[in-house]
Amino acid sequence: MNIFRLTGDLAHLLAIIILLLKIWKTRSCAGISGKSQILFAIVYTTRYLDLVTTYVSAYNTLMKIFFLGSSFATVYLIYVKFKATYDHNHDTFRIEFLILPAVILALLINHAFTPLEILWTFSIYLESVAILPQLFMVSKTGEAESITSHYLFALGSYRGLYILNWIYRYAMESHYDLIAIVAGIVQTVLYCDFFYLYITKVLKGKKLQLPA
C-alpha cells in the first residue's frame, strides 16, 4: 500500500458516499444515470468474486464488501425507492454497446482463460467505460448539479491516482498489470474533458453548464 493507492481508494470511497448522501438527503436521483450505476454494480460483482476464494487483507475485504453493498444500494435507490425522481428520458445510453465489447475483449485479451480471470478482466474493461452513460446524460441535459460534479471529480480522481500508484509500484516492486494499466488510462482519459470543466467552472462557484 502506497500513498497514491490509498488516496485513490479514499477518493473512490468518497465518490460513492457523496452520491449516496446526495440521493438520500434530497430524496431524489435527478441527474444521476441509473445505467452507469447498474454498470458499476456489474463491475464490482464480477471483480470481487475472489472475496470467497482469496484473502488479501482485512482492508481489502472490507472495501470490497463496501463497494458491492453500496453499488447495489445505489441501484435500489434509483430504480425502486426514488424511482419517481429518476430522469430516465435523459438516461438513454445503450449499455449493451459497452457490455458486449467488454465481454468480447475479455475473452480475447486476458491473463488466463479461466472463468474467474475472464470475469475479472471483463470487470476491468467495463469499469473503464462505465461512466459513459453518466457523461452522456450530462452532455444531453447540458448541465450537472454541483454535487454531481463533485461525485464525478472524486470518481475520476480515483483511477488517475491509481495510475500514479502503478508507476510507483513498477518502479519500487517491478509489479505491473498491463490490462489494468491500459484500461485505467482509458478510464482516466474519459474524464479529462470533465476535469477541465470542473476546474474552470465548478471550483469557481459556477454551475457546470456546457456551451450550447
Binding site: 493507492r5 481508494d9 473512490h12 475472489d50 482469496t54 488479501v56 487483507s57 481489502n60 472495501m63 470490497k64 463497494f67 486476458n110 491473463h111 488466463a112 482463460f113 480471470e117 475479472w120 491509481y162 500508484n165 509489479h175 505491473y176 498489470d177 498491463l178 490490462i179 489494468a180
Partner: peptide
C-alpha cells in the same frame, strides 16, 4: 497472454 499477477488492488 500476458503474465498473471496477484490481484491485491481494488
Amino acid at each position: 497472454n500476458t503474465k498473471t499477477v496477484v490481484k491485491d488492488e481494488l
